[in-house]
């Protein structure tokens, strides 16, 4: 293992993380909700009265973020190397997996770990391990 120090961006990563934490704090202190993206989106597929507007508003905020960002600065690069078939398979796995696993990087990885939830810590270790193994297999065994 060797580190890629040219790609290492500690300040923007840490500051971005703090901003994400502020957003999660805002949602729990105003709406009383966990900022778990997969749960917020998944809940829209099981609509309950009085439970739809805030979910739609949160997703709209996420989608509007690049427009808001672009007012202040040029958007950072978004490089999507995966092919369309890979993106479809990956999307299906992420959709099904986050719903059975009851959370993703935000709900388990940020909010759950912040709350020291044992369930979220197990989930986070599971998806991170699967992510590491998948990239190892794809890049270093299959050589794609």
């Amino acid at each position: 293992m060797h580190n890629d120090w040219t790609a290492f961006t500690p300040w923007s990563a840490a500051i971005g993380g703090v901003i994400i934490g502020v957003a999660a704090a805002l949602l729990v202190l105003v709406n009383g909700r966990i900022a778990g993206i997969s749960g917020i989106v998944g809940g829209l597929l099981r609509p309950a009265p009085g439970d739809v507007a805030w979910r739609l508003a949160f997703v709209a905020g996420l989608v509007a973020a690049p427009m808001g960002y672009a007012i202040i600065a040029a958007l950072p690069p978004v490089v999507i190397e995966a092919s369309y078939p890979t993106l479809i398979v990956a999307g299906l796995l992420v959709g099904i997996g986050t719903r059975y696993g009851a959370g993703c990087t935000s709900g388990h990885g940020v909010c759950g770990v912040s709350r020291l939830s044992p369930r979220s810590i197990v989930a986070t270790l599971s998806f991170m391990a699967a992510g590491f193994v998948t990239v190892f297999v794809v890049r270093h065994i299959l050589g794609i």
Binding site: S38, A90, G101, S106, F127, G131
Partner: peptide, 18 residues
Amino acid sequence: LGSLAFGVGWGLAGFCPG
């Protein structure tokens, strides 16, 4: 198992939901 499946998808595309 759900989290493992999610991790495989995350590793394939580099995308998570947010």
